[in-house]
Amino acid sequence: MNQETTATRTGSRLNESDPKIISIKGMHKWFGDFHVLKDINLEVAKSERIVICGPSGSGKSTLIRCINRLEEHQQGSIIVDDTELTQDLKNIEIIRSEVGMVFQQFNLFPHLSVLDNVTLAPIWVRKLPRAEAEEQAMQYLERVKIPEQAAKYPGQLSGGQQQRVAIARSLCMNPRIMLFDEPTSALDPEMIKEVLDVMIELAESGMTMLVVTHEMGFATAVADRVIFMDEGEIIEEKPPKEFFESPEHDRTKLFLSQILHH
């Protein structure tokens, strides 16, 4: 049902026969005794843009952190681009090199210059020669509009600039999927737009994106689907227009009323 509506909304861009790049089936996760994710089923098509929202503690960050194994799930299966996430370190390595992640706190490496931050993984994981890695890094820094900051250290940049460097750092690994964990929540209001602009540009280039965010403007403009989570469950998933205009569940309505009319 959801895929149908997605397909109608975006016309020919996505349709049901699109290959699934992420497939999560019956996934559960516990933190100790706390059942944090309950029976998660989620399929993501290639180039699909998904926004995940929900109250804090609903498990949305944990869900996307399971996709690149920053958190380990205990039941069910997660298949990313035909590779299943298991204890096998080899599979984890493959998936991590195809999945980029952007964090709320940027997590740039403060002891390295911007350029070194961006070239680190291409040089040490992809084994690119330094010159080539730097050339590619400058391309991505231009794409996030801060090539002039390449020689500086992260501590000398504003939050918005740091987050854009973090995006460039992930893109340098040429990921097929990008995960964003509340990328604008730690930013001052006037810097949110510069980061969202980069993310919108990225979405338009056809990147598969899963974004945990409360930026409903971004969801409306970019998302193919909005997923609402509460207490570890996926409560509702719909295209953004329907999600905001006609939410079905009471919990969704309550959440929307709280974030839209505060």
Binding site: N68, R69, R96, S97, M101, F103, N107, F109, L120, W124
Partner: peptide, 29 residues
């Protein structure tokens, strides 16, 4: 911060590379 380990993991750096390039330079400093 645990974010440094997570960022290194998310970029696909192995345990030894993450420690050599990201964790130890900062921890030793």
């Amino acid at each position: 911060s645990s974010g440094q380990y997570e960022a290194a993991d998310a970029l696909g750096l192995s345990y030894w590379k993450a420690h050599r390039l990201v964790i130890l330079p900062q921890a030793l400093k």
